[in-house]
């Protein structure tokens, strides 16, 4: 059992938790993920690590309540325990394998979409702790859906915020803000890390390709074990088939086949559920708060 030592609601449906898991806290690096299982009958939920504290023995997760399992997890309170918490899984961010000289040559821009802000945070913090500059764009549908802006402000060299409705910061999505920074404000970047919903990563990667910025994305496909056993997380990158769990989760954003990845992500949505989502989307327009799907 793994104890929830801190819980806070970042928005109506985005939850932050610190989980006591000293082995993972001591061994994880930015970019990696964990798998959490609520109880004996729960499924294995993969979540990218949002922060960690080796001394306190805690690992932070941030999740949006999108299905039954995440809704159930959101019901857990401080002091409760989840049945299982396993990791760190996947490869650490490529940035972690670079030395300071190499890192100083990188002009890094992070683009976060919605809940994707969480996995970006430990990467920015890692760079900050090594004295490396980087800029961060956080995009969300409106100001109520922005998360971790205060935390990010402390570690990012420049933090830019975009909301689709203009209720805070730049009016538009992260991708549009990035274009403005590069084209109008003449900011120079030679390394982009884009993390958010699949559709947001797809469109932002298209933008970075136009801008000529090499781009890393972090995928969150369906998976079961997270150790290479099941192959559910197969994804096409360039002309190769990769397992996101062991070969990723980070890949070259310009090579990922997003349409296939999105189709595979929806594999276990029931016909009924899909129809319901389609109906909602048609009625209200794109609503996930990621700033994508324009």
């Amino acid at each position: 059992m793994y104890k929830i030592v801190r819980k806070k609601c970042l928005t109506d449906n985005i939850i932050y938790m610190d989980i006591y898991a000293p082995r993972i806290a001591a061994s994880c690096k930015p970019g990696q993920f964990i798998i959490v299982i609520n109880d004996e009958k729960g499924e294995r939920i993969p979540l990218t690590i949002a922060d960690y504290d080796a001394e306190a023995g805690t690992v932070a997760i941030v999740f949006q309540t999108v299905g039954k399992s995440t809704r159930d997890l959101a019901e857990y309170e401080e002091g409760d325990s989840v049945a299982d918490f396993v990791g760190p899984l996947g490869r650490p961010s490529d940035l972690c394998s670079l030395d300071d000289t190499e890192l100083k040559e990188k002009k890094i821009i992070f683009v976060c979409g919605g809940v994707g802000t969480a996995p970006v945070y430990p990467q920015v913090k890692y760079l900050f702790n090594r004295g490396i500059d980087c800029d961060v764009i956080i995009g969300a549908r409106n100001k109520d859906l922005l998360i971790l802006t205060e935390e990010m402000k402390k570690v990012a060299t420049n933090l830019y915020i975009a909301t689709d409705d203009g209720s805070f910061g730049f009016k538009g999505n992260g991708s549009q803000l990035l274009t403005k920074l590069v084209r109008e404000d003449k900011k120079e970047y030679n390394h982009a890390v884009v993390i958010g919903p699949m559709i947001m990563m797809k469109f932002t990667s298209m933008t970075t390709k136009e801008l000529g910025i090499p781009t890393i994305v972090s995928l969150n496909p369906i998976m079961v074990d997270g150790t290479g056993m099941c192959g559910a997380c197969r994804v096409t990158v360039g002309d190769e088939i990769k397992f996101a769990c062991v070969d990723g989760p980070e890949f070259d954003g310009h090579k990922v086949n997003y349409d296939e990845a999105m189709r595979r992500q929806a594999m276990y949505k029931t016909e009924e559920g899909r129809a319901m989502l389609a109906a909602e989307d048609n009625k209200n327009g794109h609503k996930c708060g990621c700033g994508g799907g324009k």
């Binding site: 079961v224 056993m229 099941c230 192959g231 559910a232 197969r234 088939i241 595979r264 929806a266 594999m267």
Partner: peptide, 11 residues
């Protein structure tokens, strides 16, 4: 082979 509905026996 990456179509929805193709799975490994392991999965």
């Amino acid at each position: 082979e990456l179509a929805n509905g193709v799975v490994s026996a392991n999965e």
